[in-house]
Design a protein around this nucleic acid. Structure first.
Lengths: 188, 188
DNA sequence: TATCTTAGCTTAGGAAGTAAGATACTAGGA
DNA sequence: TCCTAGTATCTTACTTCCTAAGCTAAGATA
């Protein structure tokens, strides 16, 4: 308001706001992709996890996605129904089920991401290499920070610098759940 | 592998990977905050929307969150049960319900975000102002790009540069849902 | 062979969403 | 004033997708 140039604090405030917005928009974008494929975002995440170079079993998928085996059965059923993957028996261990992504699916998904990746390339073309390197450095450290802070919050569910919540005035007294209760989305 | 210095393409590839990771970590972080408050991420988002300078009604909350009025009733019930907000009658229009965030809640939430914001300040302190300005510029444009691309995907559910999906080999033939079917999270 | 472990599926139950309708209130004429 | 239309929230029925626990088939071990 006074100098015309943003102060360092203004910059940092704006940056954290924009980063939050970017995150929200990213979620929305993936939701849109999933809608186009006729699946939900959890399924899309699993499809992505299954699209790596080496074959993945249902159990492995449960492990990396953080879902239970029952949930993964549902995910695979939906992906199979949508024609995106196939269940294949593992010849070495007949208990296992290999999730084979249909060969044309990577191209399909690439097609959906196509406009996006074009736009991102265009965005990047506006910057010098050393500038991109700087952004990469920042984003990379920010991701590490976010991860560390999430872990911190998860690991010590006890007092957090004395920020006491007051008692509820009336009615149902059970604020102590704070555990996996319902329907989380994929987290890995 | 050859020059030792990353190429421009390598940079861009790494950047898009790290941005994706950042987005995932952000979601996880907010999940952790919500867990600590004993609510779900949708509720946290609504609490945030209700925490602005001016009072918000249930209907307004439904509008900005993209949820139905029925869903908002559930959100408010949970937030009220957790002792985070109160329903207050609007003196001017007795149909309306004002969602009043309890006065101590902003501090409580600040407490939870405290370590995070400290770490982010520390991260920012490693950079010059012009560097922060550059990152802000990039992130800001990236968010706009993401938004535009999500809209694009939502708006023309027809052909997308001829990336045809093949017919399913057998079983239930109904790949044409691609609409709001189930249980989205807050999107605004 | 008998038993333990592992992998995936099935089932029961719960959380949280939508859509549609009920309820209560406001507002605008006749 | 009374009737009617519109608005704001809540309620109900139903759907989706998750967890937890149990089941079955297959591999591993003694």
């Amino acid at each position: 308001m006074s100098t015309g140039l943003p102060s360092r604090d203004d910059l940092i405030g704006a940056l954290s706001w924009k980063m939050r917005r970017l995150s929200g928009e990213t979620v929305l974008f993936h939701q849109a992709i999933a809608d186009r494929l006729g699946i939900n975002p959890t399924d899309l995440k699993c499809l992505d996890l299954a699209s790596g170079p080496e074959p993945v079993t249902a159990g492995r998928l449960a492990e990396v996605s953080g879902l239970t085996s029952g949930a993964i059965t549902g995910v695979i059923n939906r992906l199979e129904k949508a024609g995106l993957v196939e269940r294949q028996p593992d010849p070495d261990d007949r208990r296992k089920v290999i999730i084979a992504v249909r060969p044309d699916v990577p191209m399909t998904v690439m097609g959906l991401f196509g406009s996006m990746s074009h736009s991102m390339l265009e965005l990047c073309s506006r910057y010098e290499e050393h500038e991109l390197a700087l952004v990469l450095d920042f984003v990379s450290r920010a991701a590490d920070t976010m991860h560390a802070e999430a872990i911190k919050l998860q690991e010590k569910p006890e007092k957090q610098e004395k920020t006491e919540r007051p008692e509820k005035t009336e009615g149902a007294e059970k604020p102590e759940k704070a555990e996996k209760t319902g329907k989380p989305t994929v987290d890995a």
